[in-house]
């Protein structure tokens, strides 16, 4: 409590922005790491870490057969969440649905109708921002499996402190002291496939949209929009990282 008060005091004096336990700046993400294709039997796999939060994603498919009650004109996406300890609970069930809907909106489902894409998410370590980490891992694994996608998606957690400041990518202990936090998923920026050719797609409005949003805690609408703005600027760095790691993978494969 004393620390927060000291931070508030420093804020009011304009001495510093905000104090975070691990010494990061409010806009600074934890170190990212991503590795691909290390599972033999899966069609695609990826391991994604935000600091100490790590999730492994495995993708199987598109395989034949589909669940009942699905659209015969489209492929279906199935997400299985494996917690690091214990059984799957209500929160994990919700995570499954959030990931499923998010992936469905970035996959080109009409390419392989009547098939199922299975995504298995294994939580290795949870130190806050678990859902964004899982979505990033799943997205990288989909690329690794060669599933046709409309675009990539990057996910981030934005937290709002009691004093009304936005911090990005909070750890678990930070999450507990926050007034509210939101998990956001953004589309990543278009990049022309042909080197040297100019972009024909208009970038502006596309990057400004959000794919998925879930929130915890109460905040003002202005602060929420502020969270989106900060998350969006950070998503550029994230998508750059994702792109680089995918390029590296392709070079090592070829």
């Amino acid at each position: 409590m004393n620390l927060t008060m000291a931070a508030d005091f420093a804020l009011s004096m304009g001495l510093m922005e905000i104090d975070r336990a691990d010494g990061r700046k409010p806009n600074q993400l934890r170190p990212l790491s991503c590795s691909h294709n290390f599972l033999n039997r899966a069609h695609g796999s990826a391991r994604w870490s935000h600091g100490d939060t790590t999730v492994i994603a495995a993708v199987y498919g598109p395989k034949s057969g589909k669940k009942t009650n699905e659209n015969p004109k489209k492929a279906s996406v199935e997400v299985v969440w494996k917690p690091n300890t214990g059984h799957i609970g209500r929160d994990e069930k919700e995570y499954e649905i959030v990931v499923k809907r998010t992936l469905e909106s970035i996959c080109l489902l009409t390419v392989n109708p009547s098939t199922t894409i299975s995504v298995i998410l294994q939580v290795v370590d949870d130190d806050g921002g678990l859902l964004p980490c899982a979505i990033n891992a799943a997205c990288a694994a989909l690329v690794d499996a060669g599933i046709p996608l409309k675009h990539l998606a990057v996910s981030i957690c934005c937290g709002l402190t009691e004093s009304g400041f936005v911090v990005l990518d909070p750890t678990k202990s930070e999450e507990q002291s926050l007034q509210a936090f939101t998990y956001l998923v953004f589309p990543n920026s278009f990049r022309s496939v042909l080197p040297g050719s100019p972009l024909s797609v208009e970038i502006g409005p596309f990057e400004n949209g959000i794919i998925t949003s879930t929130t915890h805690g109460v905040m003002s609408v202005e602060n929420y929009l502020f969270c989106i703005e900060r998350g969006r600027s950070a998503s550029a760095a994230l998508s750059e990282f994702l792109r680089k790691s995918l390029t590296k993978r392709n070079e090592s494969n070829s």
Binding site: R101, T102, N208, I210, T214, V221, Y224, I228
Partner: peptide, 19 residues
């Protein structure tokens, strides 16, 4: 008038003005 939750799963993109 405070925001308790804004819940959107997948689908088309939502822009700030739409939100």
């Amino acid at each position: 008038g405070r925001l308790v939750s804004l819940y959107k799963l997948g689908g088309n993109l939502a822009y700030n003005s739409t939100v």
